[in-house]
């Protein structure tokens, strides 16, 4: 059986190399945990906020690195603290001053990002910086994989419990505020989940590309379906299929894995734009068909 599988170019890398299997497992965790969060980022028109938050975790991870080297717990803890601090500060300033949410987030993430780069440059090299920014999906060890799995599980359970809350918060926030006391929980709970998944994603794909596995599959899936439930499933499926294809591409064409995965997901999005039933081309084609009839 193994011999047969190894003879197929689609399977052989995963049969032969443990690091490829680990990378695939890591991507599966991210597809199940981070991608649904990306769907809600998109639905709440916060896609760029996700990007900003991914930079915000950098100084925390950097301080963890400064204190303990490339240590998983230290960098994870640092990232979580920094991400949550920026989410709370940005949310607080936006709610209590004339500064709006987007500017508020931008100010804190810029502070955070520059502090992070500064801290890394104090000790370490540009290689370390590259590791933090672009991750190392092909070097996931057992603890890292466990962390990814744990965060994904936590995220799925939280999302399942709060699904109705998150849907209503995204769809009609003032209605939610009117009928339920849980409205602040919906916002801050979501931000916590976002930070959690960004920190998980940063171990695999780095801070720059962790958002890729959130937003790209979400946007691609949105061009195919118009109901939240199917959207979540399709986005996760797309994320995993895209990661698989990206890993294979990186293996066979000898390309860096992280960018290969994100680029594959990006290609899926472009393809969806071209042929998805809710894409611009399809609607044009359909309306001309409508008028001919």
């Amino acid at each position: 059986m193994n011999d047969f599988l190894s003879s197929l170019p689609l399977f052989s890398p995963f049969v032969e190399f443990a690091f490829m299997r680990r990378a695939l497992a890591g991507c599966l965790a991210l597809s199940l945990g981070a991608t649904p969060i990306g769907v809600f980022l998109m639905l709440r028109r916060m896609s760029l906020a996700g990007d900003a938050m991914s930079h915000a975790i950098l100084p925390g991870a950097a301080i963890g690195y400064l204190v303990a080297g490339l240590s998983l717990p230290a960098m994870t803890l640092g990232g979580l603290v920094a991400g949550l601090a920026v989410a709370l500060l940005a949310g607080g300033v936006a709610r209590n001053t004339v500064i709006k949410e987007d500017t508020s987030l931008a100010t804190f993430y810029l502070l955070s990002l520059s502090a992070g780069v500064l801290i890394i440059s104090l000790r370490g090299s540009s290689v370390d910086l590259l590791h933090v920014l672009f991750g190392s999906v092909l070097a996931l060890d057992d603890p890292a994989l466990l962390l990814l799995g744990a965060f994904a599980s936590l995220s799925i359970v939280a999302l399942a419990l709060g699904l109705r809350l998150f849907v209503l918060e995204a769809c009609d926030p003032s209605f939610l505020a009117r009928i339920s006391r849980l409205s602040p929980l919906a916002h801050y709970g979501f931000m916590v989940l976002l930070v959690l998944n960004l920190v998980a994603g940063f171990h695999a794909l780095g801070t720059l590309m962790a958002v890729g596995i959130m937003i790209l599959p979400a946007a691609a899936a949105r061009l195919w379906v118009c109901n939240v439930g199917p959207l979540l499933l399709l986005a996760s499926g797309t994320a995993f299929a895209g990661s698989l294809a990206g890993l294979l591409l990186s293996y066979h064409a000898d390309l860096p894995a992280g960018p290969a995965i994100v680029l594959t997901l990006g290609a899926t999005y472009l393809l969806s734009l071209a042929v998805g039933p809710l894409g611009p081309l399809a609607s044009r084609w359909r309306s001309s068909w409508h008028f001919e009839r």
Binding site: C171, F175, N227
Partner: peptide, 16 residues
């Protein structure tokens, strides 16, 4: 304040 582009069907929306 409803986001009318939100992917939700009439049944689920009314059920809220």
């Amino acid at each position: 304040t409803l986001d009318q582009t939100f992917p939700i069907v009439v049944h689920d929306f009314v059920a809220m």
